[in-house]
Design a protein around this nucleic acid. Structure first.
Length: 266
DNA sequence: ATGCCTCAGCTCCTGAGA
């Protein structure tokens, strides 16, 4: 099973690119191969689409099951799957939030959680304070969910880097948003619940990022950050065989500023 | 440089993203 995450920065703009990407094997990128070669599950963030405008027919016609939780203008998350999505839950139960940031479902016995973590804007801001509260609520909820769903994937746009290796300029950006100690402490707390960062399980080469600013030719200069992650629970880790970042969609016309991350399981 | 792109929307500018 191949499980993936992609912040598409508006599904309205990116839908053709998403459907095209789903139809191809994200591992053997040079080949156009049968549709069953694509990922089995994709978690989408920043759909920026209300539920009444979600492109249901387009995904159904392409052979996928879908679940979505959207809002106007901002945020919005969805799950796209070749297998049925069971027991769908939206947002963090018990945490009052008017933003659509989380959607969960079970697929083939694996609990899948797709999340769009708050950006946080800048340390000290109201949005940073909200990010900290949201991270605490997520942690406590995931802790209880793991009891019932030990085989779990927590993935999405985390808006947090693990360490200097995830940042193109770790010195210049130290202490700025996505790179603060407070954010990284929260990320570590999630890991300590019993997860592995799938990408780092395979010792990939340096300077692998999942996001590049639209400005200043950041992608061409590889000035990016790795802020999109796939966390795999310890009970599921033995089945994990590979994790890659597919940079190809970042080269599209009108690309998202994020690119997909894929984890492969036996 | 509170800039640089890109997107949504009560759209010809503003807020937000990261």
């Amino acid at each position: 099973m191949k499980i993936s995450t992609w912040n598409v920065n508006s599904l309205g703009v990116r839908l053709p690119q998403v459907l095209e990407w789903l139809s191809k094997d994200p591992i053997n990128l040079d080949e156009t191969i049968p549709s069953n070669a694509g990922v089995d599950v994709l978690a989408i963030q920043e759909t920026k689409t209300t539920d009444d405008k979600f492109p249901v027919k387009e995904f159904i016609d392409a052979g996928f099951h879908i679940a979505f939780h959207g809002q106007k203008t901002y945020n919005g998350v969805a799950l796209v799957s070749k297998f049925p999505l069971e027991n769908v839950v939206k947002n963090i139960p018990g945490f009052e939030d008017d933003m659509a940031r989380v959607i969960s479902a079970s697929v083939n016995g694996v609990r899948i959680i797709g999340a769009y973590f708050p950006n946080g804007q800048a340390p000290g801001s109201d949005k940073f304070e909200y990010k900290m509260r949201w991270l605490t609520a997520l942690h406590d909820w995931i802790q209880s969910e793991l009891v019932n769903h030990p085989k779990m994937v927590l993935m999405g746009d985390f808006n947090i880097t693990f360490d200097a290796k995830d940042v193109w300029d770790p010195v210049g950006l130290e202490g700025t948003i996505h790179c603060t100690q407070e954010e990284r402490t929260h990320l570590k707390a999630l890991i300590d619940l019993g997860f592995k960062d799938a990408f780092r399980e395979f010792e990939p080469a340096e300077k692998n990022y999942s996001w590049w600013d639209y400005r200043e030719f950041a992608f061409k200069r590889n000035r990016g950050m790795r802020i999109d992650h796939i966390l795999v629970s310890d009970q599921l880790r033995p089945a994990l065989t590979r994790c890659v970042i597919d940079k190809r969609p970042r080269k599209n016309e009108r690309p998202s500023d994020h690119t997909p991350v894929i984890a492969v399981f036996d």
